[in-house]
Amino acid sequence: MTDTAHSPAATVSFGYEDIAEEEKEARVGAVFSGVAKKYDIMNDAMSAGMHRLWKDKFVRRVKPQPNEDILDMAGGTGDIAFRMHKHGANVTVSDINQDMLDVGIERAMERGLDGLVWSRQNAEELSFPARHFDAYTIAFGIRNVTHIDKALAEAYRVLRFGGRFFCLEFSTTEWPGFREVYDAYSHKLVPQIGQMIAGDAESYRYLIESIRRFPPMPAFETMIRDAGFVNTRVEPILGGLVAIHSGWKI
């Protein structure tokens, strides 16, 4: 008699909750559709405006050049793309969430910015051909991907040889004292701020919890190397509260 028992279904993290991996994309999508119109206001509220400085620093590290082709993944509202566009780069803004892209397109129109390409894409299965971009950027997005290793493999695939990968993401600060203060603030106050500004405490609770479940800086750097990137580097900000990760395809 053969054993017909099935192995347990694969699970992934959704904040502090473990869910079936096929559910995550839809649930993350619902979070970002719900907060899209208030996303940038909430970023200001949650970071006291510091996210703008982090993004400025991030783009300085990317060093966008005139006429080079850059894919800004999970770039929905355009914050990173607008900064790189100023340097003359040809930027393709991609996001899995159309609501986020719609906010970005509206913001670009308000600023009179044309020349940006907007494309709905799944970071794990990009439709672009191999060796298509000179740089790949992703800011505060990779922790929401179901399979981070697949997203990194796709980043490697679509980059040309000599191309560079840059990721800006929350991590865990290693500064004693500050870590405890930030933990208390983020877990207790951020959902309340989300409720007041966006009428949505649960989505912001997930966003904070997803930071806690994201791999620590050394582990994520190892994942980037495992995807094939070399000369990897981690630049902690505020002791690692945020970090800029980079690598090269050669």
Rank of each mutant, 00 (worst) to 15 (best):
L152D: 07
L152K: 07
L152I: 05
L152E: 11
E154K: 14
E154G: 12
E154W: 00
E154P: 10
A155R: 07
Y156S: 12
Y156R: 12
L159I: 09
R160E: 06
G162S: 11
G163N: 02
R164C: 03
R164I: 00
R164K: 05
F165E: 00
C167D: 06
C167I: 07
L168K: 05
L168V: 01
F170S: 04
T172I: 10
T172P: 05
T173S: 15
T173F: 15
T173G: 10
E174A: 10
W175I: 12
W175A: 09
P176I: 00
G177Q: 08
V181G: 06
V181S: 09
V181E: 11
D183L: 10
Y185D: 13
Y185H: 08
Y185F: 15
S186W: 11
S186G: 10
S186C: 14
H187S: 08
K188C: 00
L189T: 03
L189H: 03
V190G: 03
P191M: 02
Q192W: 01
I193P: 04
Q195G: 03
Q195W: 06
I197G: 00
I197C: 02
I197L: 13
D200K: 09
A201V: 01
E202A: 06
E202F: 06
Y204I: 00
R205K: 11
R205N: 00
Y206N: 05
L207A: 13
L207I: 09
I208G: 02
I208W: 09
I208R: 06
S210R: 10
S210A: 14
S210E: 03
I211H: 07
I211G: 05
I211L: 07
I211N: 06
I211A: 07
R212N: 14
R212K: 08
R213E: 15
R213Y: 07
P216H: 08
P216K: 05
P216I: 04
P218E: 01
P218I: 01
A219T: 05
A219D: 03
F220P: 04
E221I: 00
M223E: 01
I224V: 15
I224H: 06
R225K: 15
R225Y: 07
R225G: 15
R225Q: 13
A227L: 06
A227N: 12
F229T: 00
V230T: 13
R233S: 05
R233M: 05
V234M: 14
V234D: 00
V234W: 03
E235N: 09
E235F: 06
E235R: 13
E235Q: 13
P236E: 00
P236T: 10
I237V: 14
L238E: 15
L238P: 08
G239T: 11
G240M: 11
L241Q: 15
A243R: 02
A243T: 11
